[in-house]
Design a protein around this nucleic acid. Sequence first.
DNA 1: GTGGTCTAGACCACA
DNA 2: GTGGTCTAGACCACC
Lengths: 125, 125, 125, 125
Amino acid sequence: MAQPFNPSVPIYLQLCERIKNRIIRGEIGIGERLPSVRELAIDAAVNPNTVQRAYRELEETGIVEKKRGQGTFVTEKPAVLQRMREELKTSHIKLFVSEMREMGYSEREMLDGLKDFLTDKEEKE
Amino acid sequence: MAQPFNPSVPIYLQLCERIKNRIIRGEIGIGERLPSVRELAIDAAVNPNTVQRAYRELEETGIVEKKRGQGTFVTEKPAVLQRMREELKTSHIKLFVSEMREMGYSEREMLDGLKDFLTDKEEKE
Amino acid sequence: MAQPFNPSVPIYLQLCERIKNRIIRGEIGIGERLPSVRELAIDAAVNPNTVQRAYRELEETGIVEKKRGQGTFVTEKPAVLQRMREELKTSHIKLFVSEMREMGYSEREMLDGLKDFLTDKEEKE
Amino acid sequence: MAQPFNPSVPIYLQLCERIKNRIIRGEIGIGERLPSVRELAIDAAVNPNTVQRAYRELEETGIVEKKRGQGTFVTEKPAVLQRMREELKTSHIKLFVSEMREMGYSEREMLDGLKDFLTDKEEKE
DNA sequence: GTGGTCTAGACCACA
DNA sequence: GTGGTCTAGACCACC
């Protein structure tokens, strides 16, 4: 979490992304407690209000739940996590497709290329 | 070409990439002449030696050919271009797969996700 | 009864309202004895004269009756209680209607809205 | 807007309520511009950040839309306004019903009482 | 001019 | 301790 921030995009959004990624990647488990607002603020070297805003944003998407006087926790609802996971997947794929299209590759090439790449890896391993 | 360079990777390699991309994308056609070393040096705000090295690198891969006293040209051999195109495609796919794996997605999810995404787009359009 | 008083309306009137509400709500039953003037004065932290005035006011409306040397009692006449109940109901409805009108709602909306709300609650329960 | 705030409920929520009421009441028309963050901050004697939070809250409910460099505007979508109006109506009715129930009145009494009250008013007028 | 973000630091309610 | 709210004042991007 000591990584620098891209100054051209709001810090609280970058914090959201980092946390969301860690949750979806499973680094922070279901129902697990996130660092407190103050802890993360110190860790990320930002103002507590900025962390609070990120946590608030995450709570609105439903991936996180706050408990008064206890802390902030990853939601216990697997459905929400699943939805987030799907959304993140689609957004990565979307980016990949737009880059490939931008390079002039057809959808056939993307699909077959991906299939071949994964198949070849299998054979090698 | 006035984009800044990533200081952590050799500029001549970045030049190679940019030129290769433009060729594969078709911005610079088959058999077409590339800008002269001096032109590109000024345009990219780098030392002519750096451009020279990039051109030499590209020539070694076979994607461009130098003609004494005339300049540097995109190869006329479609097979080479085709190979380059394939290599570039594979490297992009490789990056995509490693990122997705990094995020914890299975190969099934990548393939199906890509297929679904492309199919859905078709339906919408 | 330890609730604070609204300083902009006479305390004795507020006492009247509170007592009337408790009687109509059935907290103080028909024919039952009210707390003595002194008791209520201590309990509500007001001057006994204020309680006295409230009780006199209530007696004039007929909802309570004083018995010399015994105390103050809720009237035994159901008709009076019924009338009070109706009056209180109407005053609440009046307030509701004026608020809703204030907000720009039509009488149709009030009636249908109330009917729908009560019907929906039934279905859910 | 110079009314005092209830210190036991967040100012930004009270601001939201006041603005929502004014919009639903029609005091601020469809598509109309709201006071700027700074204006309202001065007018309501609160910090601009507090107003901003209220506006943000309203934007999330969809009743308001922000336009960069231009200001904050009441949404042009009648459906959203209609929905807000319905929600507000239901919440008022809910409060009324719970108060009446609390006083010991039956649903019959509420409905008939309201109907009678509105009918009587008609006759008088 | 508009809203958007961020900081620093305050006080609060809840547990 | 936790998060929730608020203030004061800064700088930014957009129009």
